[in-house]
Design a protein around this nucleic acid. Structure first.
Lengths: 158, 158
DNA sequence: TCATAAAGACAACCTAGTTGTCTATCAACA
DNA sequence: TGTTGATAGACAACTAGGTTGTCTTTATGA
């Protein structure tokens, strides 16, 4: 076996990179007073704040089923980051509203990820990191934009 | 909100990249006759073939608990990719052996990931992809090498 | 030989998804 | 004005992939 430069290795590097950032962010969120908030949940919160104000819409924007979205919403509501109000315009819907605590958590999460990114920039150089992001955006972003999410700042996962 | 070049976006790009490769690989593995094999399981198979011949050892190499490793092993065994033999040298251990079907699946998985990687190379250029990998390896690989896994070709996730 | 460490089995639980079924509601159209 | 079809969300059951904790069996080293 040659074991040089394999495709599987690329996949593992990407996963490893995400896990490293996500784990560090989880730990730091916990340290800053948000112990039960994982990055995925924080991303969902961000999507809701950006306009995904119903479970079905959140599911569409995150490319997950509405049932999966409902579970994230239930968690976020239980932890006080989110409120579900009755939508007077459409009584089927529950209107999702980010609480003040939720906004604080989002700010903390944003700051943490920015800090983690700047550590990476120090490690490999700002330009190299910019380039890495640009190339990844070309590879991932283009393939995964679904029309409804186009105004959501490229934060859609798939 | 400025929404330029945020740290969270970097994390999502990495996750998105992995998911894209993993989803494509899962679909292609299914198309080639291995419908119940996910990339994570294939990576575990690869680790076992590379010498992680017990559940505890697999757990150490993949940086997961031995119980989690045992679950992956149970799945792989149930699908016929793996056999668990009695280790005559140590009767506590079950010796993990990749079956012929397992080896076929690994070969298919390797080919698929290599093909996916070459599609990416076509999209952004071979040099750009090499550089992306080198930089990611610097960021991720160095932080995550645990001594026992050092001889395992950098395939460790964490 | 005996204390300790390690391997694995088993159970209970969590997160993050899935599909399927069901009810309530809205919206559009004959 | 109704009826019909799409949508929102609740609920259940399931899967994958993890966790911690407890337990028994077996090695191993002082």
């Amino acid at each position: 076996m040659l074991m040089t430069r394999k495709g599987a290795n690329l996949a593992l590097l990407l996963l490893g990179g995400f896990r490293q950032l996500a784990d560090a962010a989880t730990a730091e969120l916990s340290r800053r007073g948000y112990p039960e908030l994982r990055p995925t949940q924080e991303f969902a919160l961000r999507a809701i704040a950006a306009g995904a104000t119903s479970a079905s819409e959140l599911g569409r924007r995150m490319s997950i089923s509405k049932q999966a979205a409902a579970k994230v919403i239930a968690l976020l509501e239980a932890r006080g980051y989110l409120a579900r109000l009755d939508d007077e315009a459409d009584s089927r819907r529950k209107l999702l509203v980010v609480t003040p605590l939720g906004h604080q958590a989002m700010q903390a999460g944003e700051a943490i990820f920015d800090e983690l990114r700047s550590v990476w920039a120090q490690n490999i150089g700002a330009e190299a990191l910019d380039q890495l992001e640009r190339n990844l955006a070309l590879l991932v972003g283009d393939a995964g934009v679904d029309e409804d999410a186009a105004d959501w700042s490229g934060l859609d996962v798939q």
